[in-house]
Design a protein around this nucleic acid. Sequence first.
DNA 1: ATAGTCCATAAGAATTTCTTTCGGAAAGGC
DNA 2: GCCTTTCCGAAAGAAATTCTTATGGACTAT
Lengths: 292, 292
Amino acid sequence: MAGTPLKPLPAFEAAARTGSFAAAARELGVTSAAVSQQVKVLEHFWGRTLFLRQGNRLSLTDAGLTAYPPLANALTAIGDLSERMQGITRRARFVLSALPSVAETWLPLRLADWLADGGDRQVDIRIEDDPVDFNRDRVHMRIFHGHSLYADYCTEVLFRDRIIAIATPAVIACHGASVPALPDKTLIHTDWGTDYATGPDWSDFLSGERVIDAGAGLRVTTSSAAIQCALAGLGVALVPAMTAKHHLEAGRLRRVEAPEMQIDRPYSVAYPHAIKDWPIVGSLVESLRRSG
Amino acid sequence: MAGTPLKPLPAFEAAARTGSFAAAARELGVTSAAVSQQVKVLEHFWGRTLFLRQGNRLSLTDAGLTAYPPLANALTAIGDLSERMQGITRRARFVLSALPSVAETWLPLRLADWLADGGDRQVDIRIEDDPVDFNRDRVHMRIFHGHSLYADYCTEVLFRDRIIAIATPAVIACHGASVPALPDKTLIHTDWGTDYATGPDWSDFLSGERVIDAGAGLRVTTSSAAIQCALAGLGVALVPAMTAKHHLEAGRLRRVEAPEMQIDRPYSVAYPHAIKDWPIVGSLVESLRRSG
DNA sequence: ATAGTCCATAAGAATTTCTTTCGGAAAGGC
DNA sequence: GCCTTTCCGAAAGAAATTCTTATGGACTAT
C-alpha cells in the first residue's frame, strides 16, 4: 500500500454510505469542503473518478461501488480494534461531561438520587470546561450553561439559578446579615474562570455604595472552594444558590441579605441526536431537572 | 472509529513486524524519528504502551501483540484494494529496473534468451540511475553495479566485466591493432556519467606513454553510443566487454590490443526479501548470469 | 421569484508530519 | 577499559497536509 493516503478513506466511506458530502461532513465533524477535498485526493491517487457530481447531487461510479465494500470492512475492523485497544468496558459506560462548578457541587447529589431511583448504568464523569468534542472524547451528554456552542446537538434546559451571598451563622453574628455592613476583608472573591462570560462580583451587589478593596479578602478559583471557605468561617462568599442548597438546608450556612442576581444562562444538557431515544438520557434529564 | 488516527498505523505495523523503528523507517521512506513520533501518537490515543524501549532495543508489549494481527490484516486489505483501484494489469507485470548502459546493450538480448527459454511473464523495464525506490516505484528487481545502496534487499552477483578497446576491421587496418599507435583523433571518449564512480579513460590504457589530446576525438555520453560510433568506423571506443560481445562474435567489431581493465564492481541484482522465492526471480537471475 | 441545500473552488489559517540535531543506552570489537 | 556503531528519545523548526471560510453555480420546493 505504498503511498496510499489513509486520511481520505473514512471520508470516502461516509460519503459513499450516505450519498452526500454534507452528511458525511456532519458525521465526521468537519466541513463538506474538507470531505470534498479528501475524496479528490483519493480520486487523484487512484486515478479513478469515485463519484458523479451532477449539479448539487452526488452518485457513486462503478469504481466507487467497487471500492466501497472491502474498504468499509477494513475500516470497521480498524475501528473495532481501536475500541478494543481503548477498553471495551469504557465503551459500555455512559460518559457525562460537566463543568467543574457543577461536578464539584450539585451533580454528585443529583446522581445519587438518580441511582437511588433506579438508574442502573455506570456513568463516567468527565470534568472539563467548554468546548467539548463529543466525537473525539466519546461524550454522551454535556452539562453546561446555556449558549449556542452545542447547537448541532439536542439541548434541553434543566433549570435556572441565581447568585446569593452566604456565610456561617458565626460570621453573620459577628458582622451582620446585610451586605453593605461587611468589611472588605470578609468578602471572598471568586475567579469564575471560563464558567461565565462575565462573572458576578461583589461590586455588582454593592451597586456603587462603596469602593471595595478587592485585595483585602480571600480569592479562590472555584465555586466549591468558595463554599468551603465560607463553611470554614473565613467570610462571605457569592455562589450559585444550587451549589449551596444542601448546606443552607442543614443550617451550616445562611443567606446574607443581598439582592439576588439571576444567572443569565440556564443550566442545560446537550447530547447527540443519535442517542435521544436512549432511556438513560430521558431518566437522567428528568432527575437533573428535579433539582430545580 | 471516531477520531482514530490512521496515519500512524503503517508505522506501528512495520515496527511491530521488523522489531525496529529504524528498519520501519527505511521501509516507509521516512526517518526513524518520524516513526517514533507516530507510534507515540498511537500509544497516547489508545492509552496503551505498545513497545518496550530498553536503551536502544525495542520489543512489543502484550497490547502491541494484541493489536498487530488484526491491524496487519486490515492494512493488507486496504493495500490490495488500493492496488486494484490503480489497475490490476499494472500489478501483474514484473518490474525490472536497470541502468541505462545495461538496458541499452546486453539486457535486451538476455531477455530475448530468457523468453525463448520459457519465461512467460510480461516484464516492464524501467531505465533509471541509482538510487531506486522499490516501494514507491513498485520495482521488483534492480540491476546495478555492486555497491551497498540496496543493503536492505537480497542481492546476488551476476558477473564481472572488463573494459576493452574495439574498432571496425577497416579502422584497425588503417591505424593498426595496438593502442599506442592510434592517433588522438581516432579515440572515442566516453563520459560515463553516474554509471561508474570513476570511469576508465584512454590515459589509463596508455599508462603515461604519451599525453592525449582529449579534445581531438569524439566524445559521447553512453557506452551504447560509443559502440555505435565504433561500428560506424569513426574510431576506437572503450566499452564493457559484455556490451560489445555480440558485435565481436559477428565480426563487425574487433579487439584492439590493449591491457584489459577490470571493472571494480560486478553487475548485480537486488530484490525485496518478500519475493525471493518467486520462480520468476530464480529464472531471471539464472538467465542474466549465463551471459557472464 | 425566493429560500434552502448541496457540491466546487480558492485562499488562507491551523494542525499534523516531517527532518535535523543532539544525547543517552547498548552491543561489539580491539 | 575504550572506542565505534547503531538505535531510540526529545526538542526545535521546517514542510506538508488538512481544515475553515467565503463565494458561486446547480437543483428543488414553495
